[in-house]
């Protein structure tokens, strides 16, 4: 294996080095180093940034900013991020969570990317040197993106408004059959006034369930009233097939799990 690691103190300097062919950014390395161990010779050089700012979590005035190098373990144990802890804990086992970063999760292909599903439901903003991009746009263009992500930002949800579910076959850890995140606002009468639902494993990257979101508006979270939303959940999905589950199976169980997430 011939692999060269280049270390920079700032994302700005590293961005230039990253433009060279065969060069990839190294986050926690759980996917990149895994690929090079497996014989991926398309990567000849890795670039990393040691700026401690990339590992910072800032929570102020209802806004959260997670540096791109913040790990899943740091999120899961942060006292002010309790609403997000289930999504942080959903990634891998303890050692993976100590290494897996927010930045890397944005690029993780399905069945990975559980935390990015949560970020998509939260309508996060992805920060690079070039500016801020809505996460939906970012995910759509991530295959050709060459810029280093430095942070993600979003409004801190309340524990009641944010729901997250990961379904896996092996407990307590295991790769996703699917994951779902939902940000729901309820009016005083208990009907849904706004809904943002994101799905993992329902495409090669996290996607929104926009038809289900629309169908939920004005509904109470009762089995009868959410039924149309569950029926619409499969619109526009193209689930992955892997050793964990087939696309058919994933599509079949999606409404069941969405129903459980919405009605509990």
């Amino acid at each position: 294996m011939s692999l060269v690691l280049q270390t920079f103190s700032s994302a700005k300097d590293a961005n230039a080095a990253l433009q060279a062919p065969g060069t990839r950014y190294l986050g926690g390395g759980t996917l990149v180093v895994r690929a090079t161990n497996e014989g991926d010779v398309s990567t000849s050089s890795l670039v990393r940034v040691t700026d401690p700012g990339l590992s910072q979590i800032a929570v102020a005035g209802g806004k959260v900013r997670l540096g791109a190098s913040v790990t899943m373990a740091a999120i899961a144990s942060h006292p002010e991020l309790a609403a997000l802890a289930p999504a942080g804990r959903a990634v891998g086992g303890p050692a993976i969570r100590n290494m897996a970063t927010v930045g890397g999760n944005l690029f993780a292909p399905a069945p990975y990317g559980d935390f990015a599903v949560a970020l998509l439901a939260l309508d996060a903003t992805v920060v690079t040197e070039g500016g801020e991009t809505p996460i939906e746009t970012f995910l759509a263009g991530r295959d050709t993106s060459r810029a280093i992500v430095t942070a993600v930002g979003f409004s801190l949800p309340t524990a009641e408004s944010f729901r997250f579910l990961k379904v896996s076959r092996i407990k307590p850890k295991g790769v996703s059959v699917l994951s779902i995140a939902a940000l729901l606002e309820l009016a005083a009468d208990g009907t849904v006034s706004s809904a943002r639902i994101a799905l993992g494993c329902m495409a090669d990257r996290p996607i929104r369930a926009t038809a289900a979101e629309k169908a939920l508006l004005g509904c109470k979270l009762t089995p009868r009233e959410i039924a149309p939303a569950l029926a619409a959940a499969g619109e526009g999905i193209a689930p992955i097939t892997d050793p964990i589950a087939s696309a058919w199976y994933r599509a079949e169980v999606l409404p069941v799990h969405l129903g459980r997430l919405l009605s509990n």
Partner: peptide
Amino acid sequence: CSVIIDGELRLSCLTLAET
């Protein structure tokens, strides 16, 4: 391959020694 780095459990197979 699990080892403890600065008090945290890590996988040494996915960690580059230089880091």
